[in-house]
Amino acid sequence: MSGLTRMGLGAFLLTQIACVGSSPPARFYLLEPLAALDRAPAVSATAKPTLALIPVKIPQYLQRAQLVTASGKNTYLLDEWHRWAESLDDNITRVVLRDLSLLMPADVVLNNSQYARQAKLALAISILEFHIDPEGRARMTAQWQASRGDQTLISRQSSFQVSAENADAASKVQALNQCLFRLNREMAEALTPLGAN
């Protein structure tokens, strides 16, 4: 290998290293429960019934770290520099659990916990869409069902849209968070009259 070739190869490698080193660091996000967003109404401290929450299901296109944005009809972009800090289904499940515990006069527990045996009411949620659309709006559609034993008491599909205040990723995550809070509030209002016993 000639000296000129070695110098050219060395310059190429240095350029590649410089490109790698100049990439911006990825930023990580979590959806936050109501306690971090707003003040919940006071709930009586008397003995409360138990509601069993089945872990939330999300579609395959959301089972990834990157934030998802629709760029057009049937096309989506994955943001490599803005990612969820944990699996999105776990994050959503935890937020639903915390929000419903604040919004309802009930102890909300995961259906696989030891306390779930006391629950007479179960809640199952499937997220159908949860992303930013081409106009910068957060979009969420979810199917949810409340049941007592083998009897379905409520079965609904709910959809929400919230415009992000800015085009940055943090604003988009906040808008998605607001969609989730609206779903949680709708479910709490529908489930509270049923009681969880």
Rank of each mutant, 00 (worst) to 15 (best):
L4R: 02
M7E: 05
G10E: 09
F12R: 12
L13C: 15
L13Q: 08
I17Q: 03
A18T: 03
V20W: 13
G21P: 07
P25D: 05
A26D: 04
A26G: 06
Y29W: 04
L30F: 09
L31D: 00
L37T: 11
D38K: 10
R39K: 15
S44R: 13
S44N: 13
T46P: 01
K48M: 07
P49H: 03
P49S: 09
P49R: 04
V56S: 00
V56L: 01
K57S: 12
K57W: 00
I58K: 02
L62I: 05
Q63I: 07
Q66I: 10
V68P: 04
T69P: 09
S71E: 02
S71G: 08
S71W: 01
G72Q: 03
K73P: 08
N74R: 06
T75W: 01
T75Y: 00
T75R: 05
L77V: 14
S87A: 15
V96T: 10
D99G: 10
D99P: 05
L102P: 05
P105G: 14
A106G: 02
A106C: 05
A106K: 03
D107W: 00
V108E: 03
V109D: 00
N111E: 06
N112H: 14
S113F: 01
S113K: 07
A116C: 10
Q118T: 10
A119F: 05
L121C: 03
A122C: 11
S126V: 12
L128Y: 02
H131I: 01
H131L: 08
P134Q: 01
E135D: 10
R139S: 01
R139Q: 02
R139L: 05
A142N: 00
A142D: 00
Q143R: 13
Q143T: 10
Q145I: 01
A146T: 00
A146G: 03
A146L: 06
S147M: 11
S147Y: 11
R148D: 03
D150L: 12
Q151K: 11
R156F: 03
R156G: 04
Q157I: 13
S159H: 04
E165V: 14
N166L: 12
D168Q: 15
A169Q: 09
S171Q: 13
V173F: 01
A175R: 12
L180E: 04
F181W: 15
R182P: 09
R182N: 12
L183G: 02
E186A: 13
A188L: 14
A188Y: 00
L191C: 09
T192V: 15
P193E: 04
G195A: 13
N197M: 11
